[in-house]
Simulated scan of single mutants.
Amino acid sequence: MSAPQQPYVQDMPPQGGFARVQYKRNIPARGPSGAALFAGLTAIVAYGWYWNIQGIRERREIRREQTWARIHLVPMLQAEQDRHEARMLAQQEEIERKAMKDVPGWKVGEKVYHTDRYVPPTVLVADNKFLNLF
């Protein structure tokens, strides 16, 4: 004989379905997004360029001031150089006078160039051991 037949019950999902199967990694977002990083980097670079350009302008202004200061100082420096050359020429003529005192017909300070053009004087700068020869 055969066993009594029971109604066939198929195994079905619960009402509303099964829970979702988690197959992705659940990693939380850490740190700022790429767009935020790019915006921050752009802001930092822009700030750096701003100060770089300000520094360039400041150096240009300082260079301009130095140039004008030198332009205004040139007459004073030239006068100082002229006074220095006059003192050195007087000292040189005195040395020449002492050295050539025994040579007949020697003219101290006579031009050595046979021209009417201005020739800047050649100033001899010597040590004390050479100046004290006479």
Rank of each mutant, 00 (worst) to 15 (best):
E96L: 10
R97F: 02
E80V: 01
Q92K: 13
D102V: 09
Q78F: 10
R83F: 14
A69C: 04
Q81F: 07
A79V: 12
W106L: 03
T115S: 04
E80Q: 14
E110R: 14
R83D: 12
L77T: 12
A86T: 01
A69R: 07
H72M: 08
E85C: 11
R97E: 13
M76Y: 13
E65S: 06
M100P: 01
K98P: 01
W68V: 08
E65C: 05
R87C: 00
E94I: 07
V108P: 01
Q92L: 10
A79M: 14
V103I: 13
R97Y: 10
V108A: 03
P104Q: 03
R70W: 00
G105T: 06
W68D: 08
T115A: 00
M100C: 10
R70I: 05
R83P: 02
A86V: 04
E94G: 14
A86W: 09
D82W: 12
H72T: 13
K98L: 14
L73Q: 14
V103K: 00
G109E: 08
Q92C: 04
Q91I: 08
K101E: 06
V74P: 01
V74D: 08
L77M: 04
D102G: 05
Q78P: 01
L73S: 10
T115H: 02
K98F: 07
K98I: 03
T115D: 09
A69D: 09
Q78E: 08
Q92F: 06
P75G: 15
K101V: 04
G105R: 05
R97M: 12
A99L: 07
W68N: 05
I71E: 06
Y113N: 10
R97D: 11
V74Y: 06
M76G: 11
H114E: 08
D82K: 15
Y113H: 10
W68T: 12
T67L: 06
V103M: 00
R83G: 07
V108H: 03
A86M: 03
M100G: 01
V108G: 02
E93G: 14
H84V: 03
Q91V: 10
V103T: 13
E85L: 08
E93F: 15
Q92D: 08
E96K: 11
H72K: 10
R97G: 12
V74R: 12
A99W: 00
D102A: 07
